[in-house]
Amino acid sequence: MNWSSFSDFLAMGGYAFFVWMSYGVTALLVVAEVAWVVKQRRRSLARAQVQRSIREWSST
């Protein structure tokens, strides 16, 4: 263990701004990408559902 306390960890030896800007933006981008993929998944399923309904409707 490198740190003596949690605030010590957050301070990053005086480099807090640079380290947390790097990690923060990376985390934000990863979360955004995951959210985007989830949204894309829902949208594609919804569209396919509409297509299926149209197919069923036109075949009956």
């Binding site: 740190w3 990053m12 030896g13 480099y15 640079f18 380290v19 790097s22």
Partner: peptide, 18 residues
């Protein structure tokens, strides 16, 4: 958490992990 502070660059080197 585990890795020690770099003697030249201090803790700014921890950006290396991403």
């Amino acid at each position: 958490v585990l890795a020690p502070t770099d003697f030249q660059q201090g803790d700014s080197y921890r950006i290396i992990y991403i």
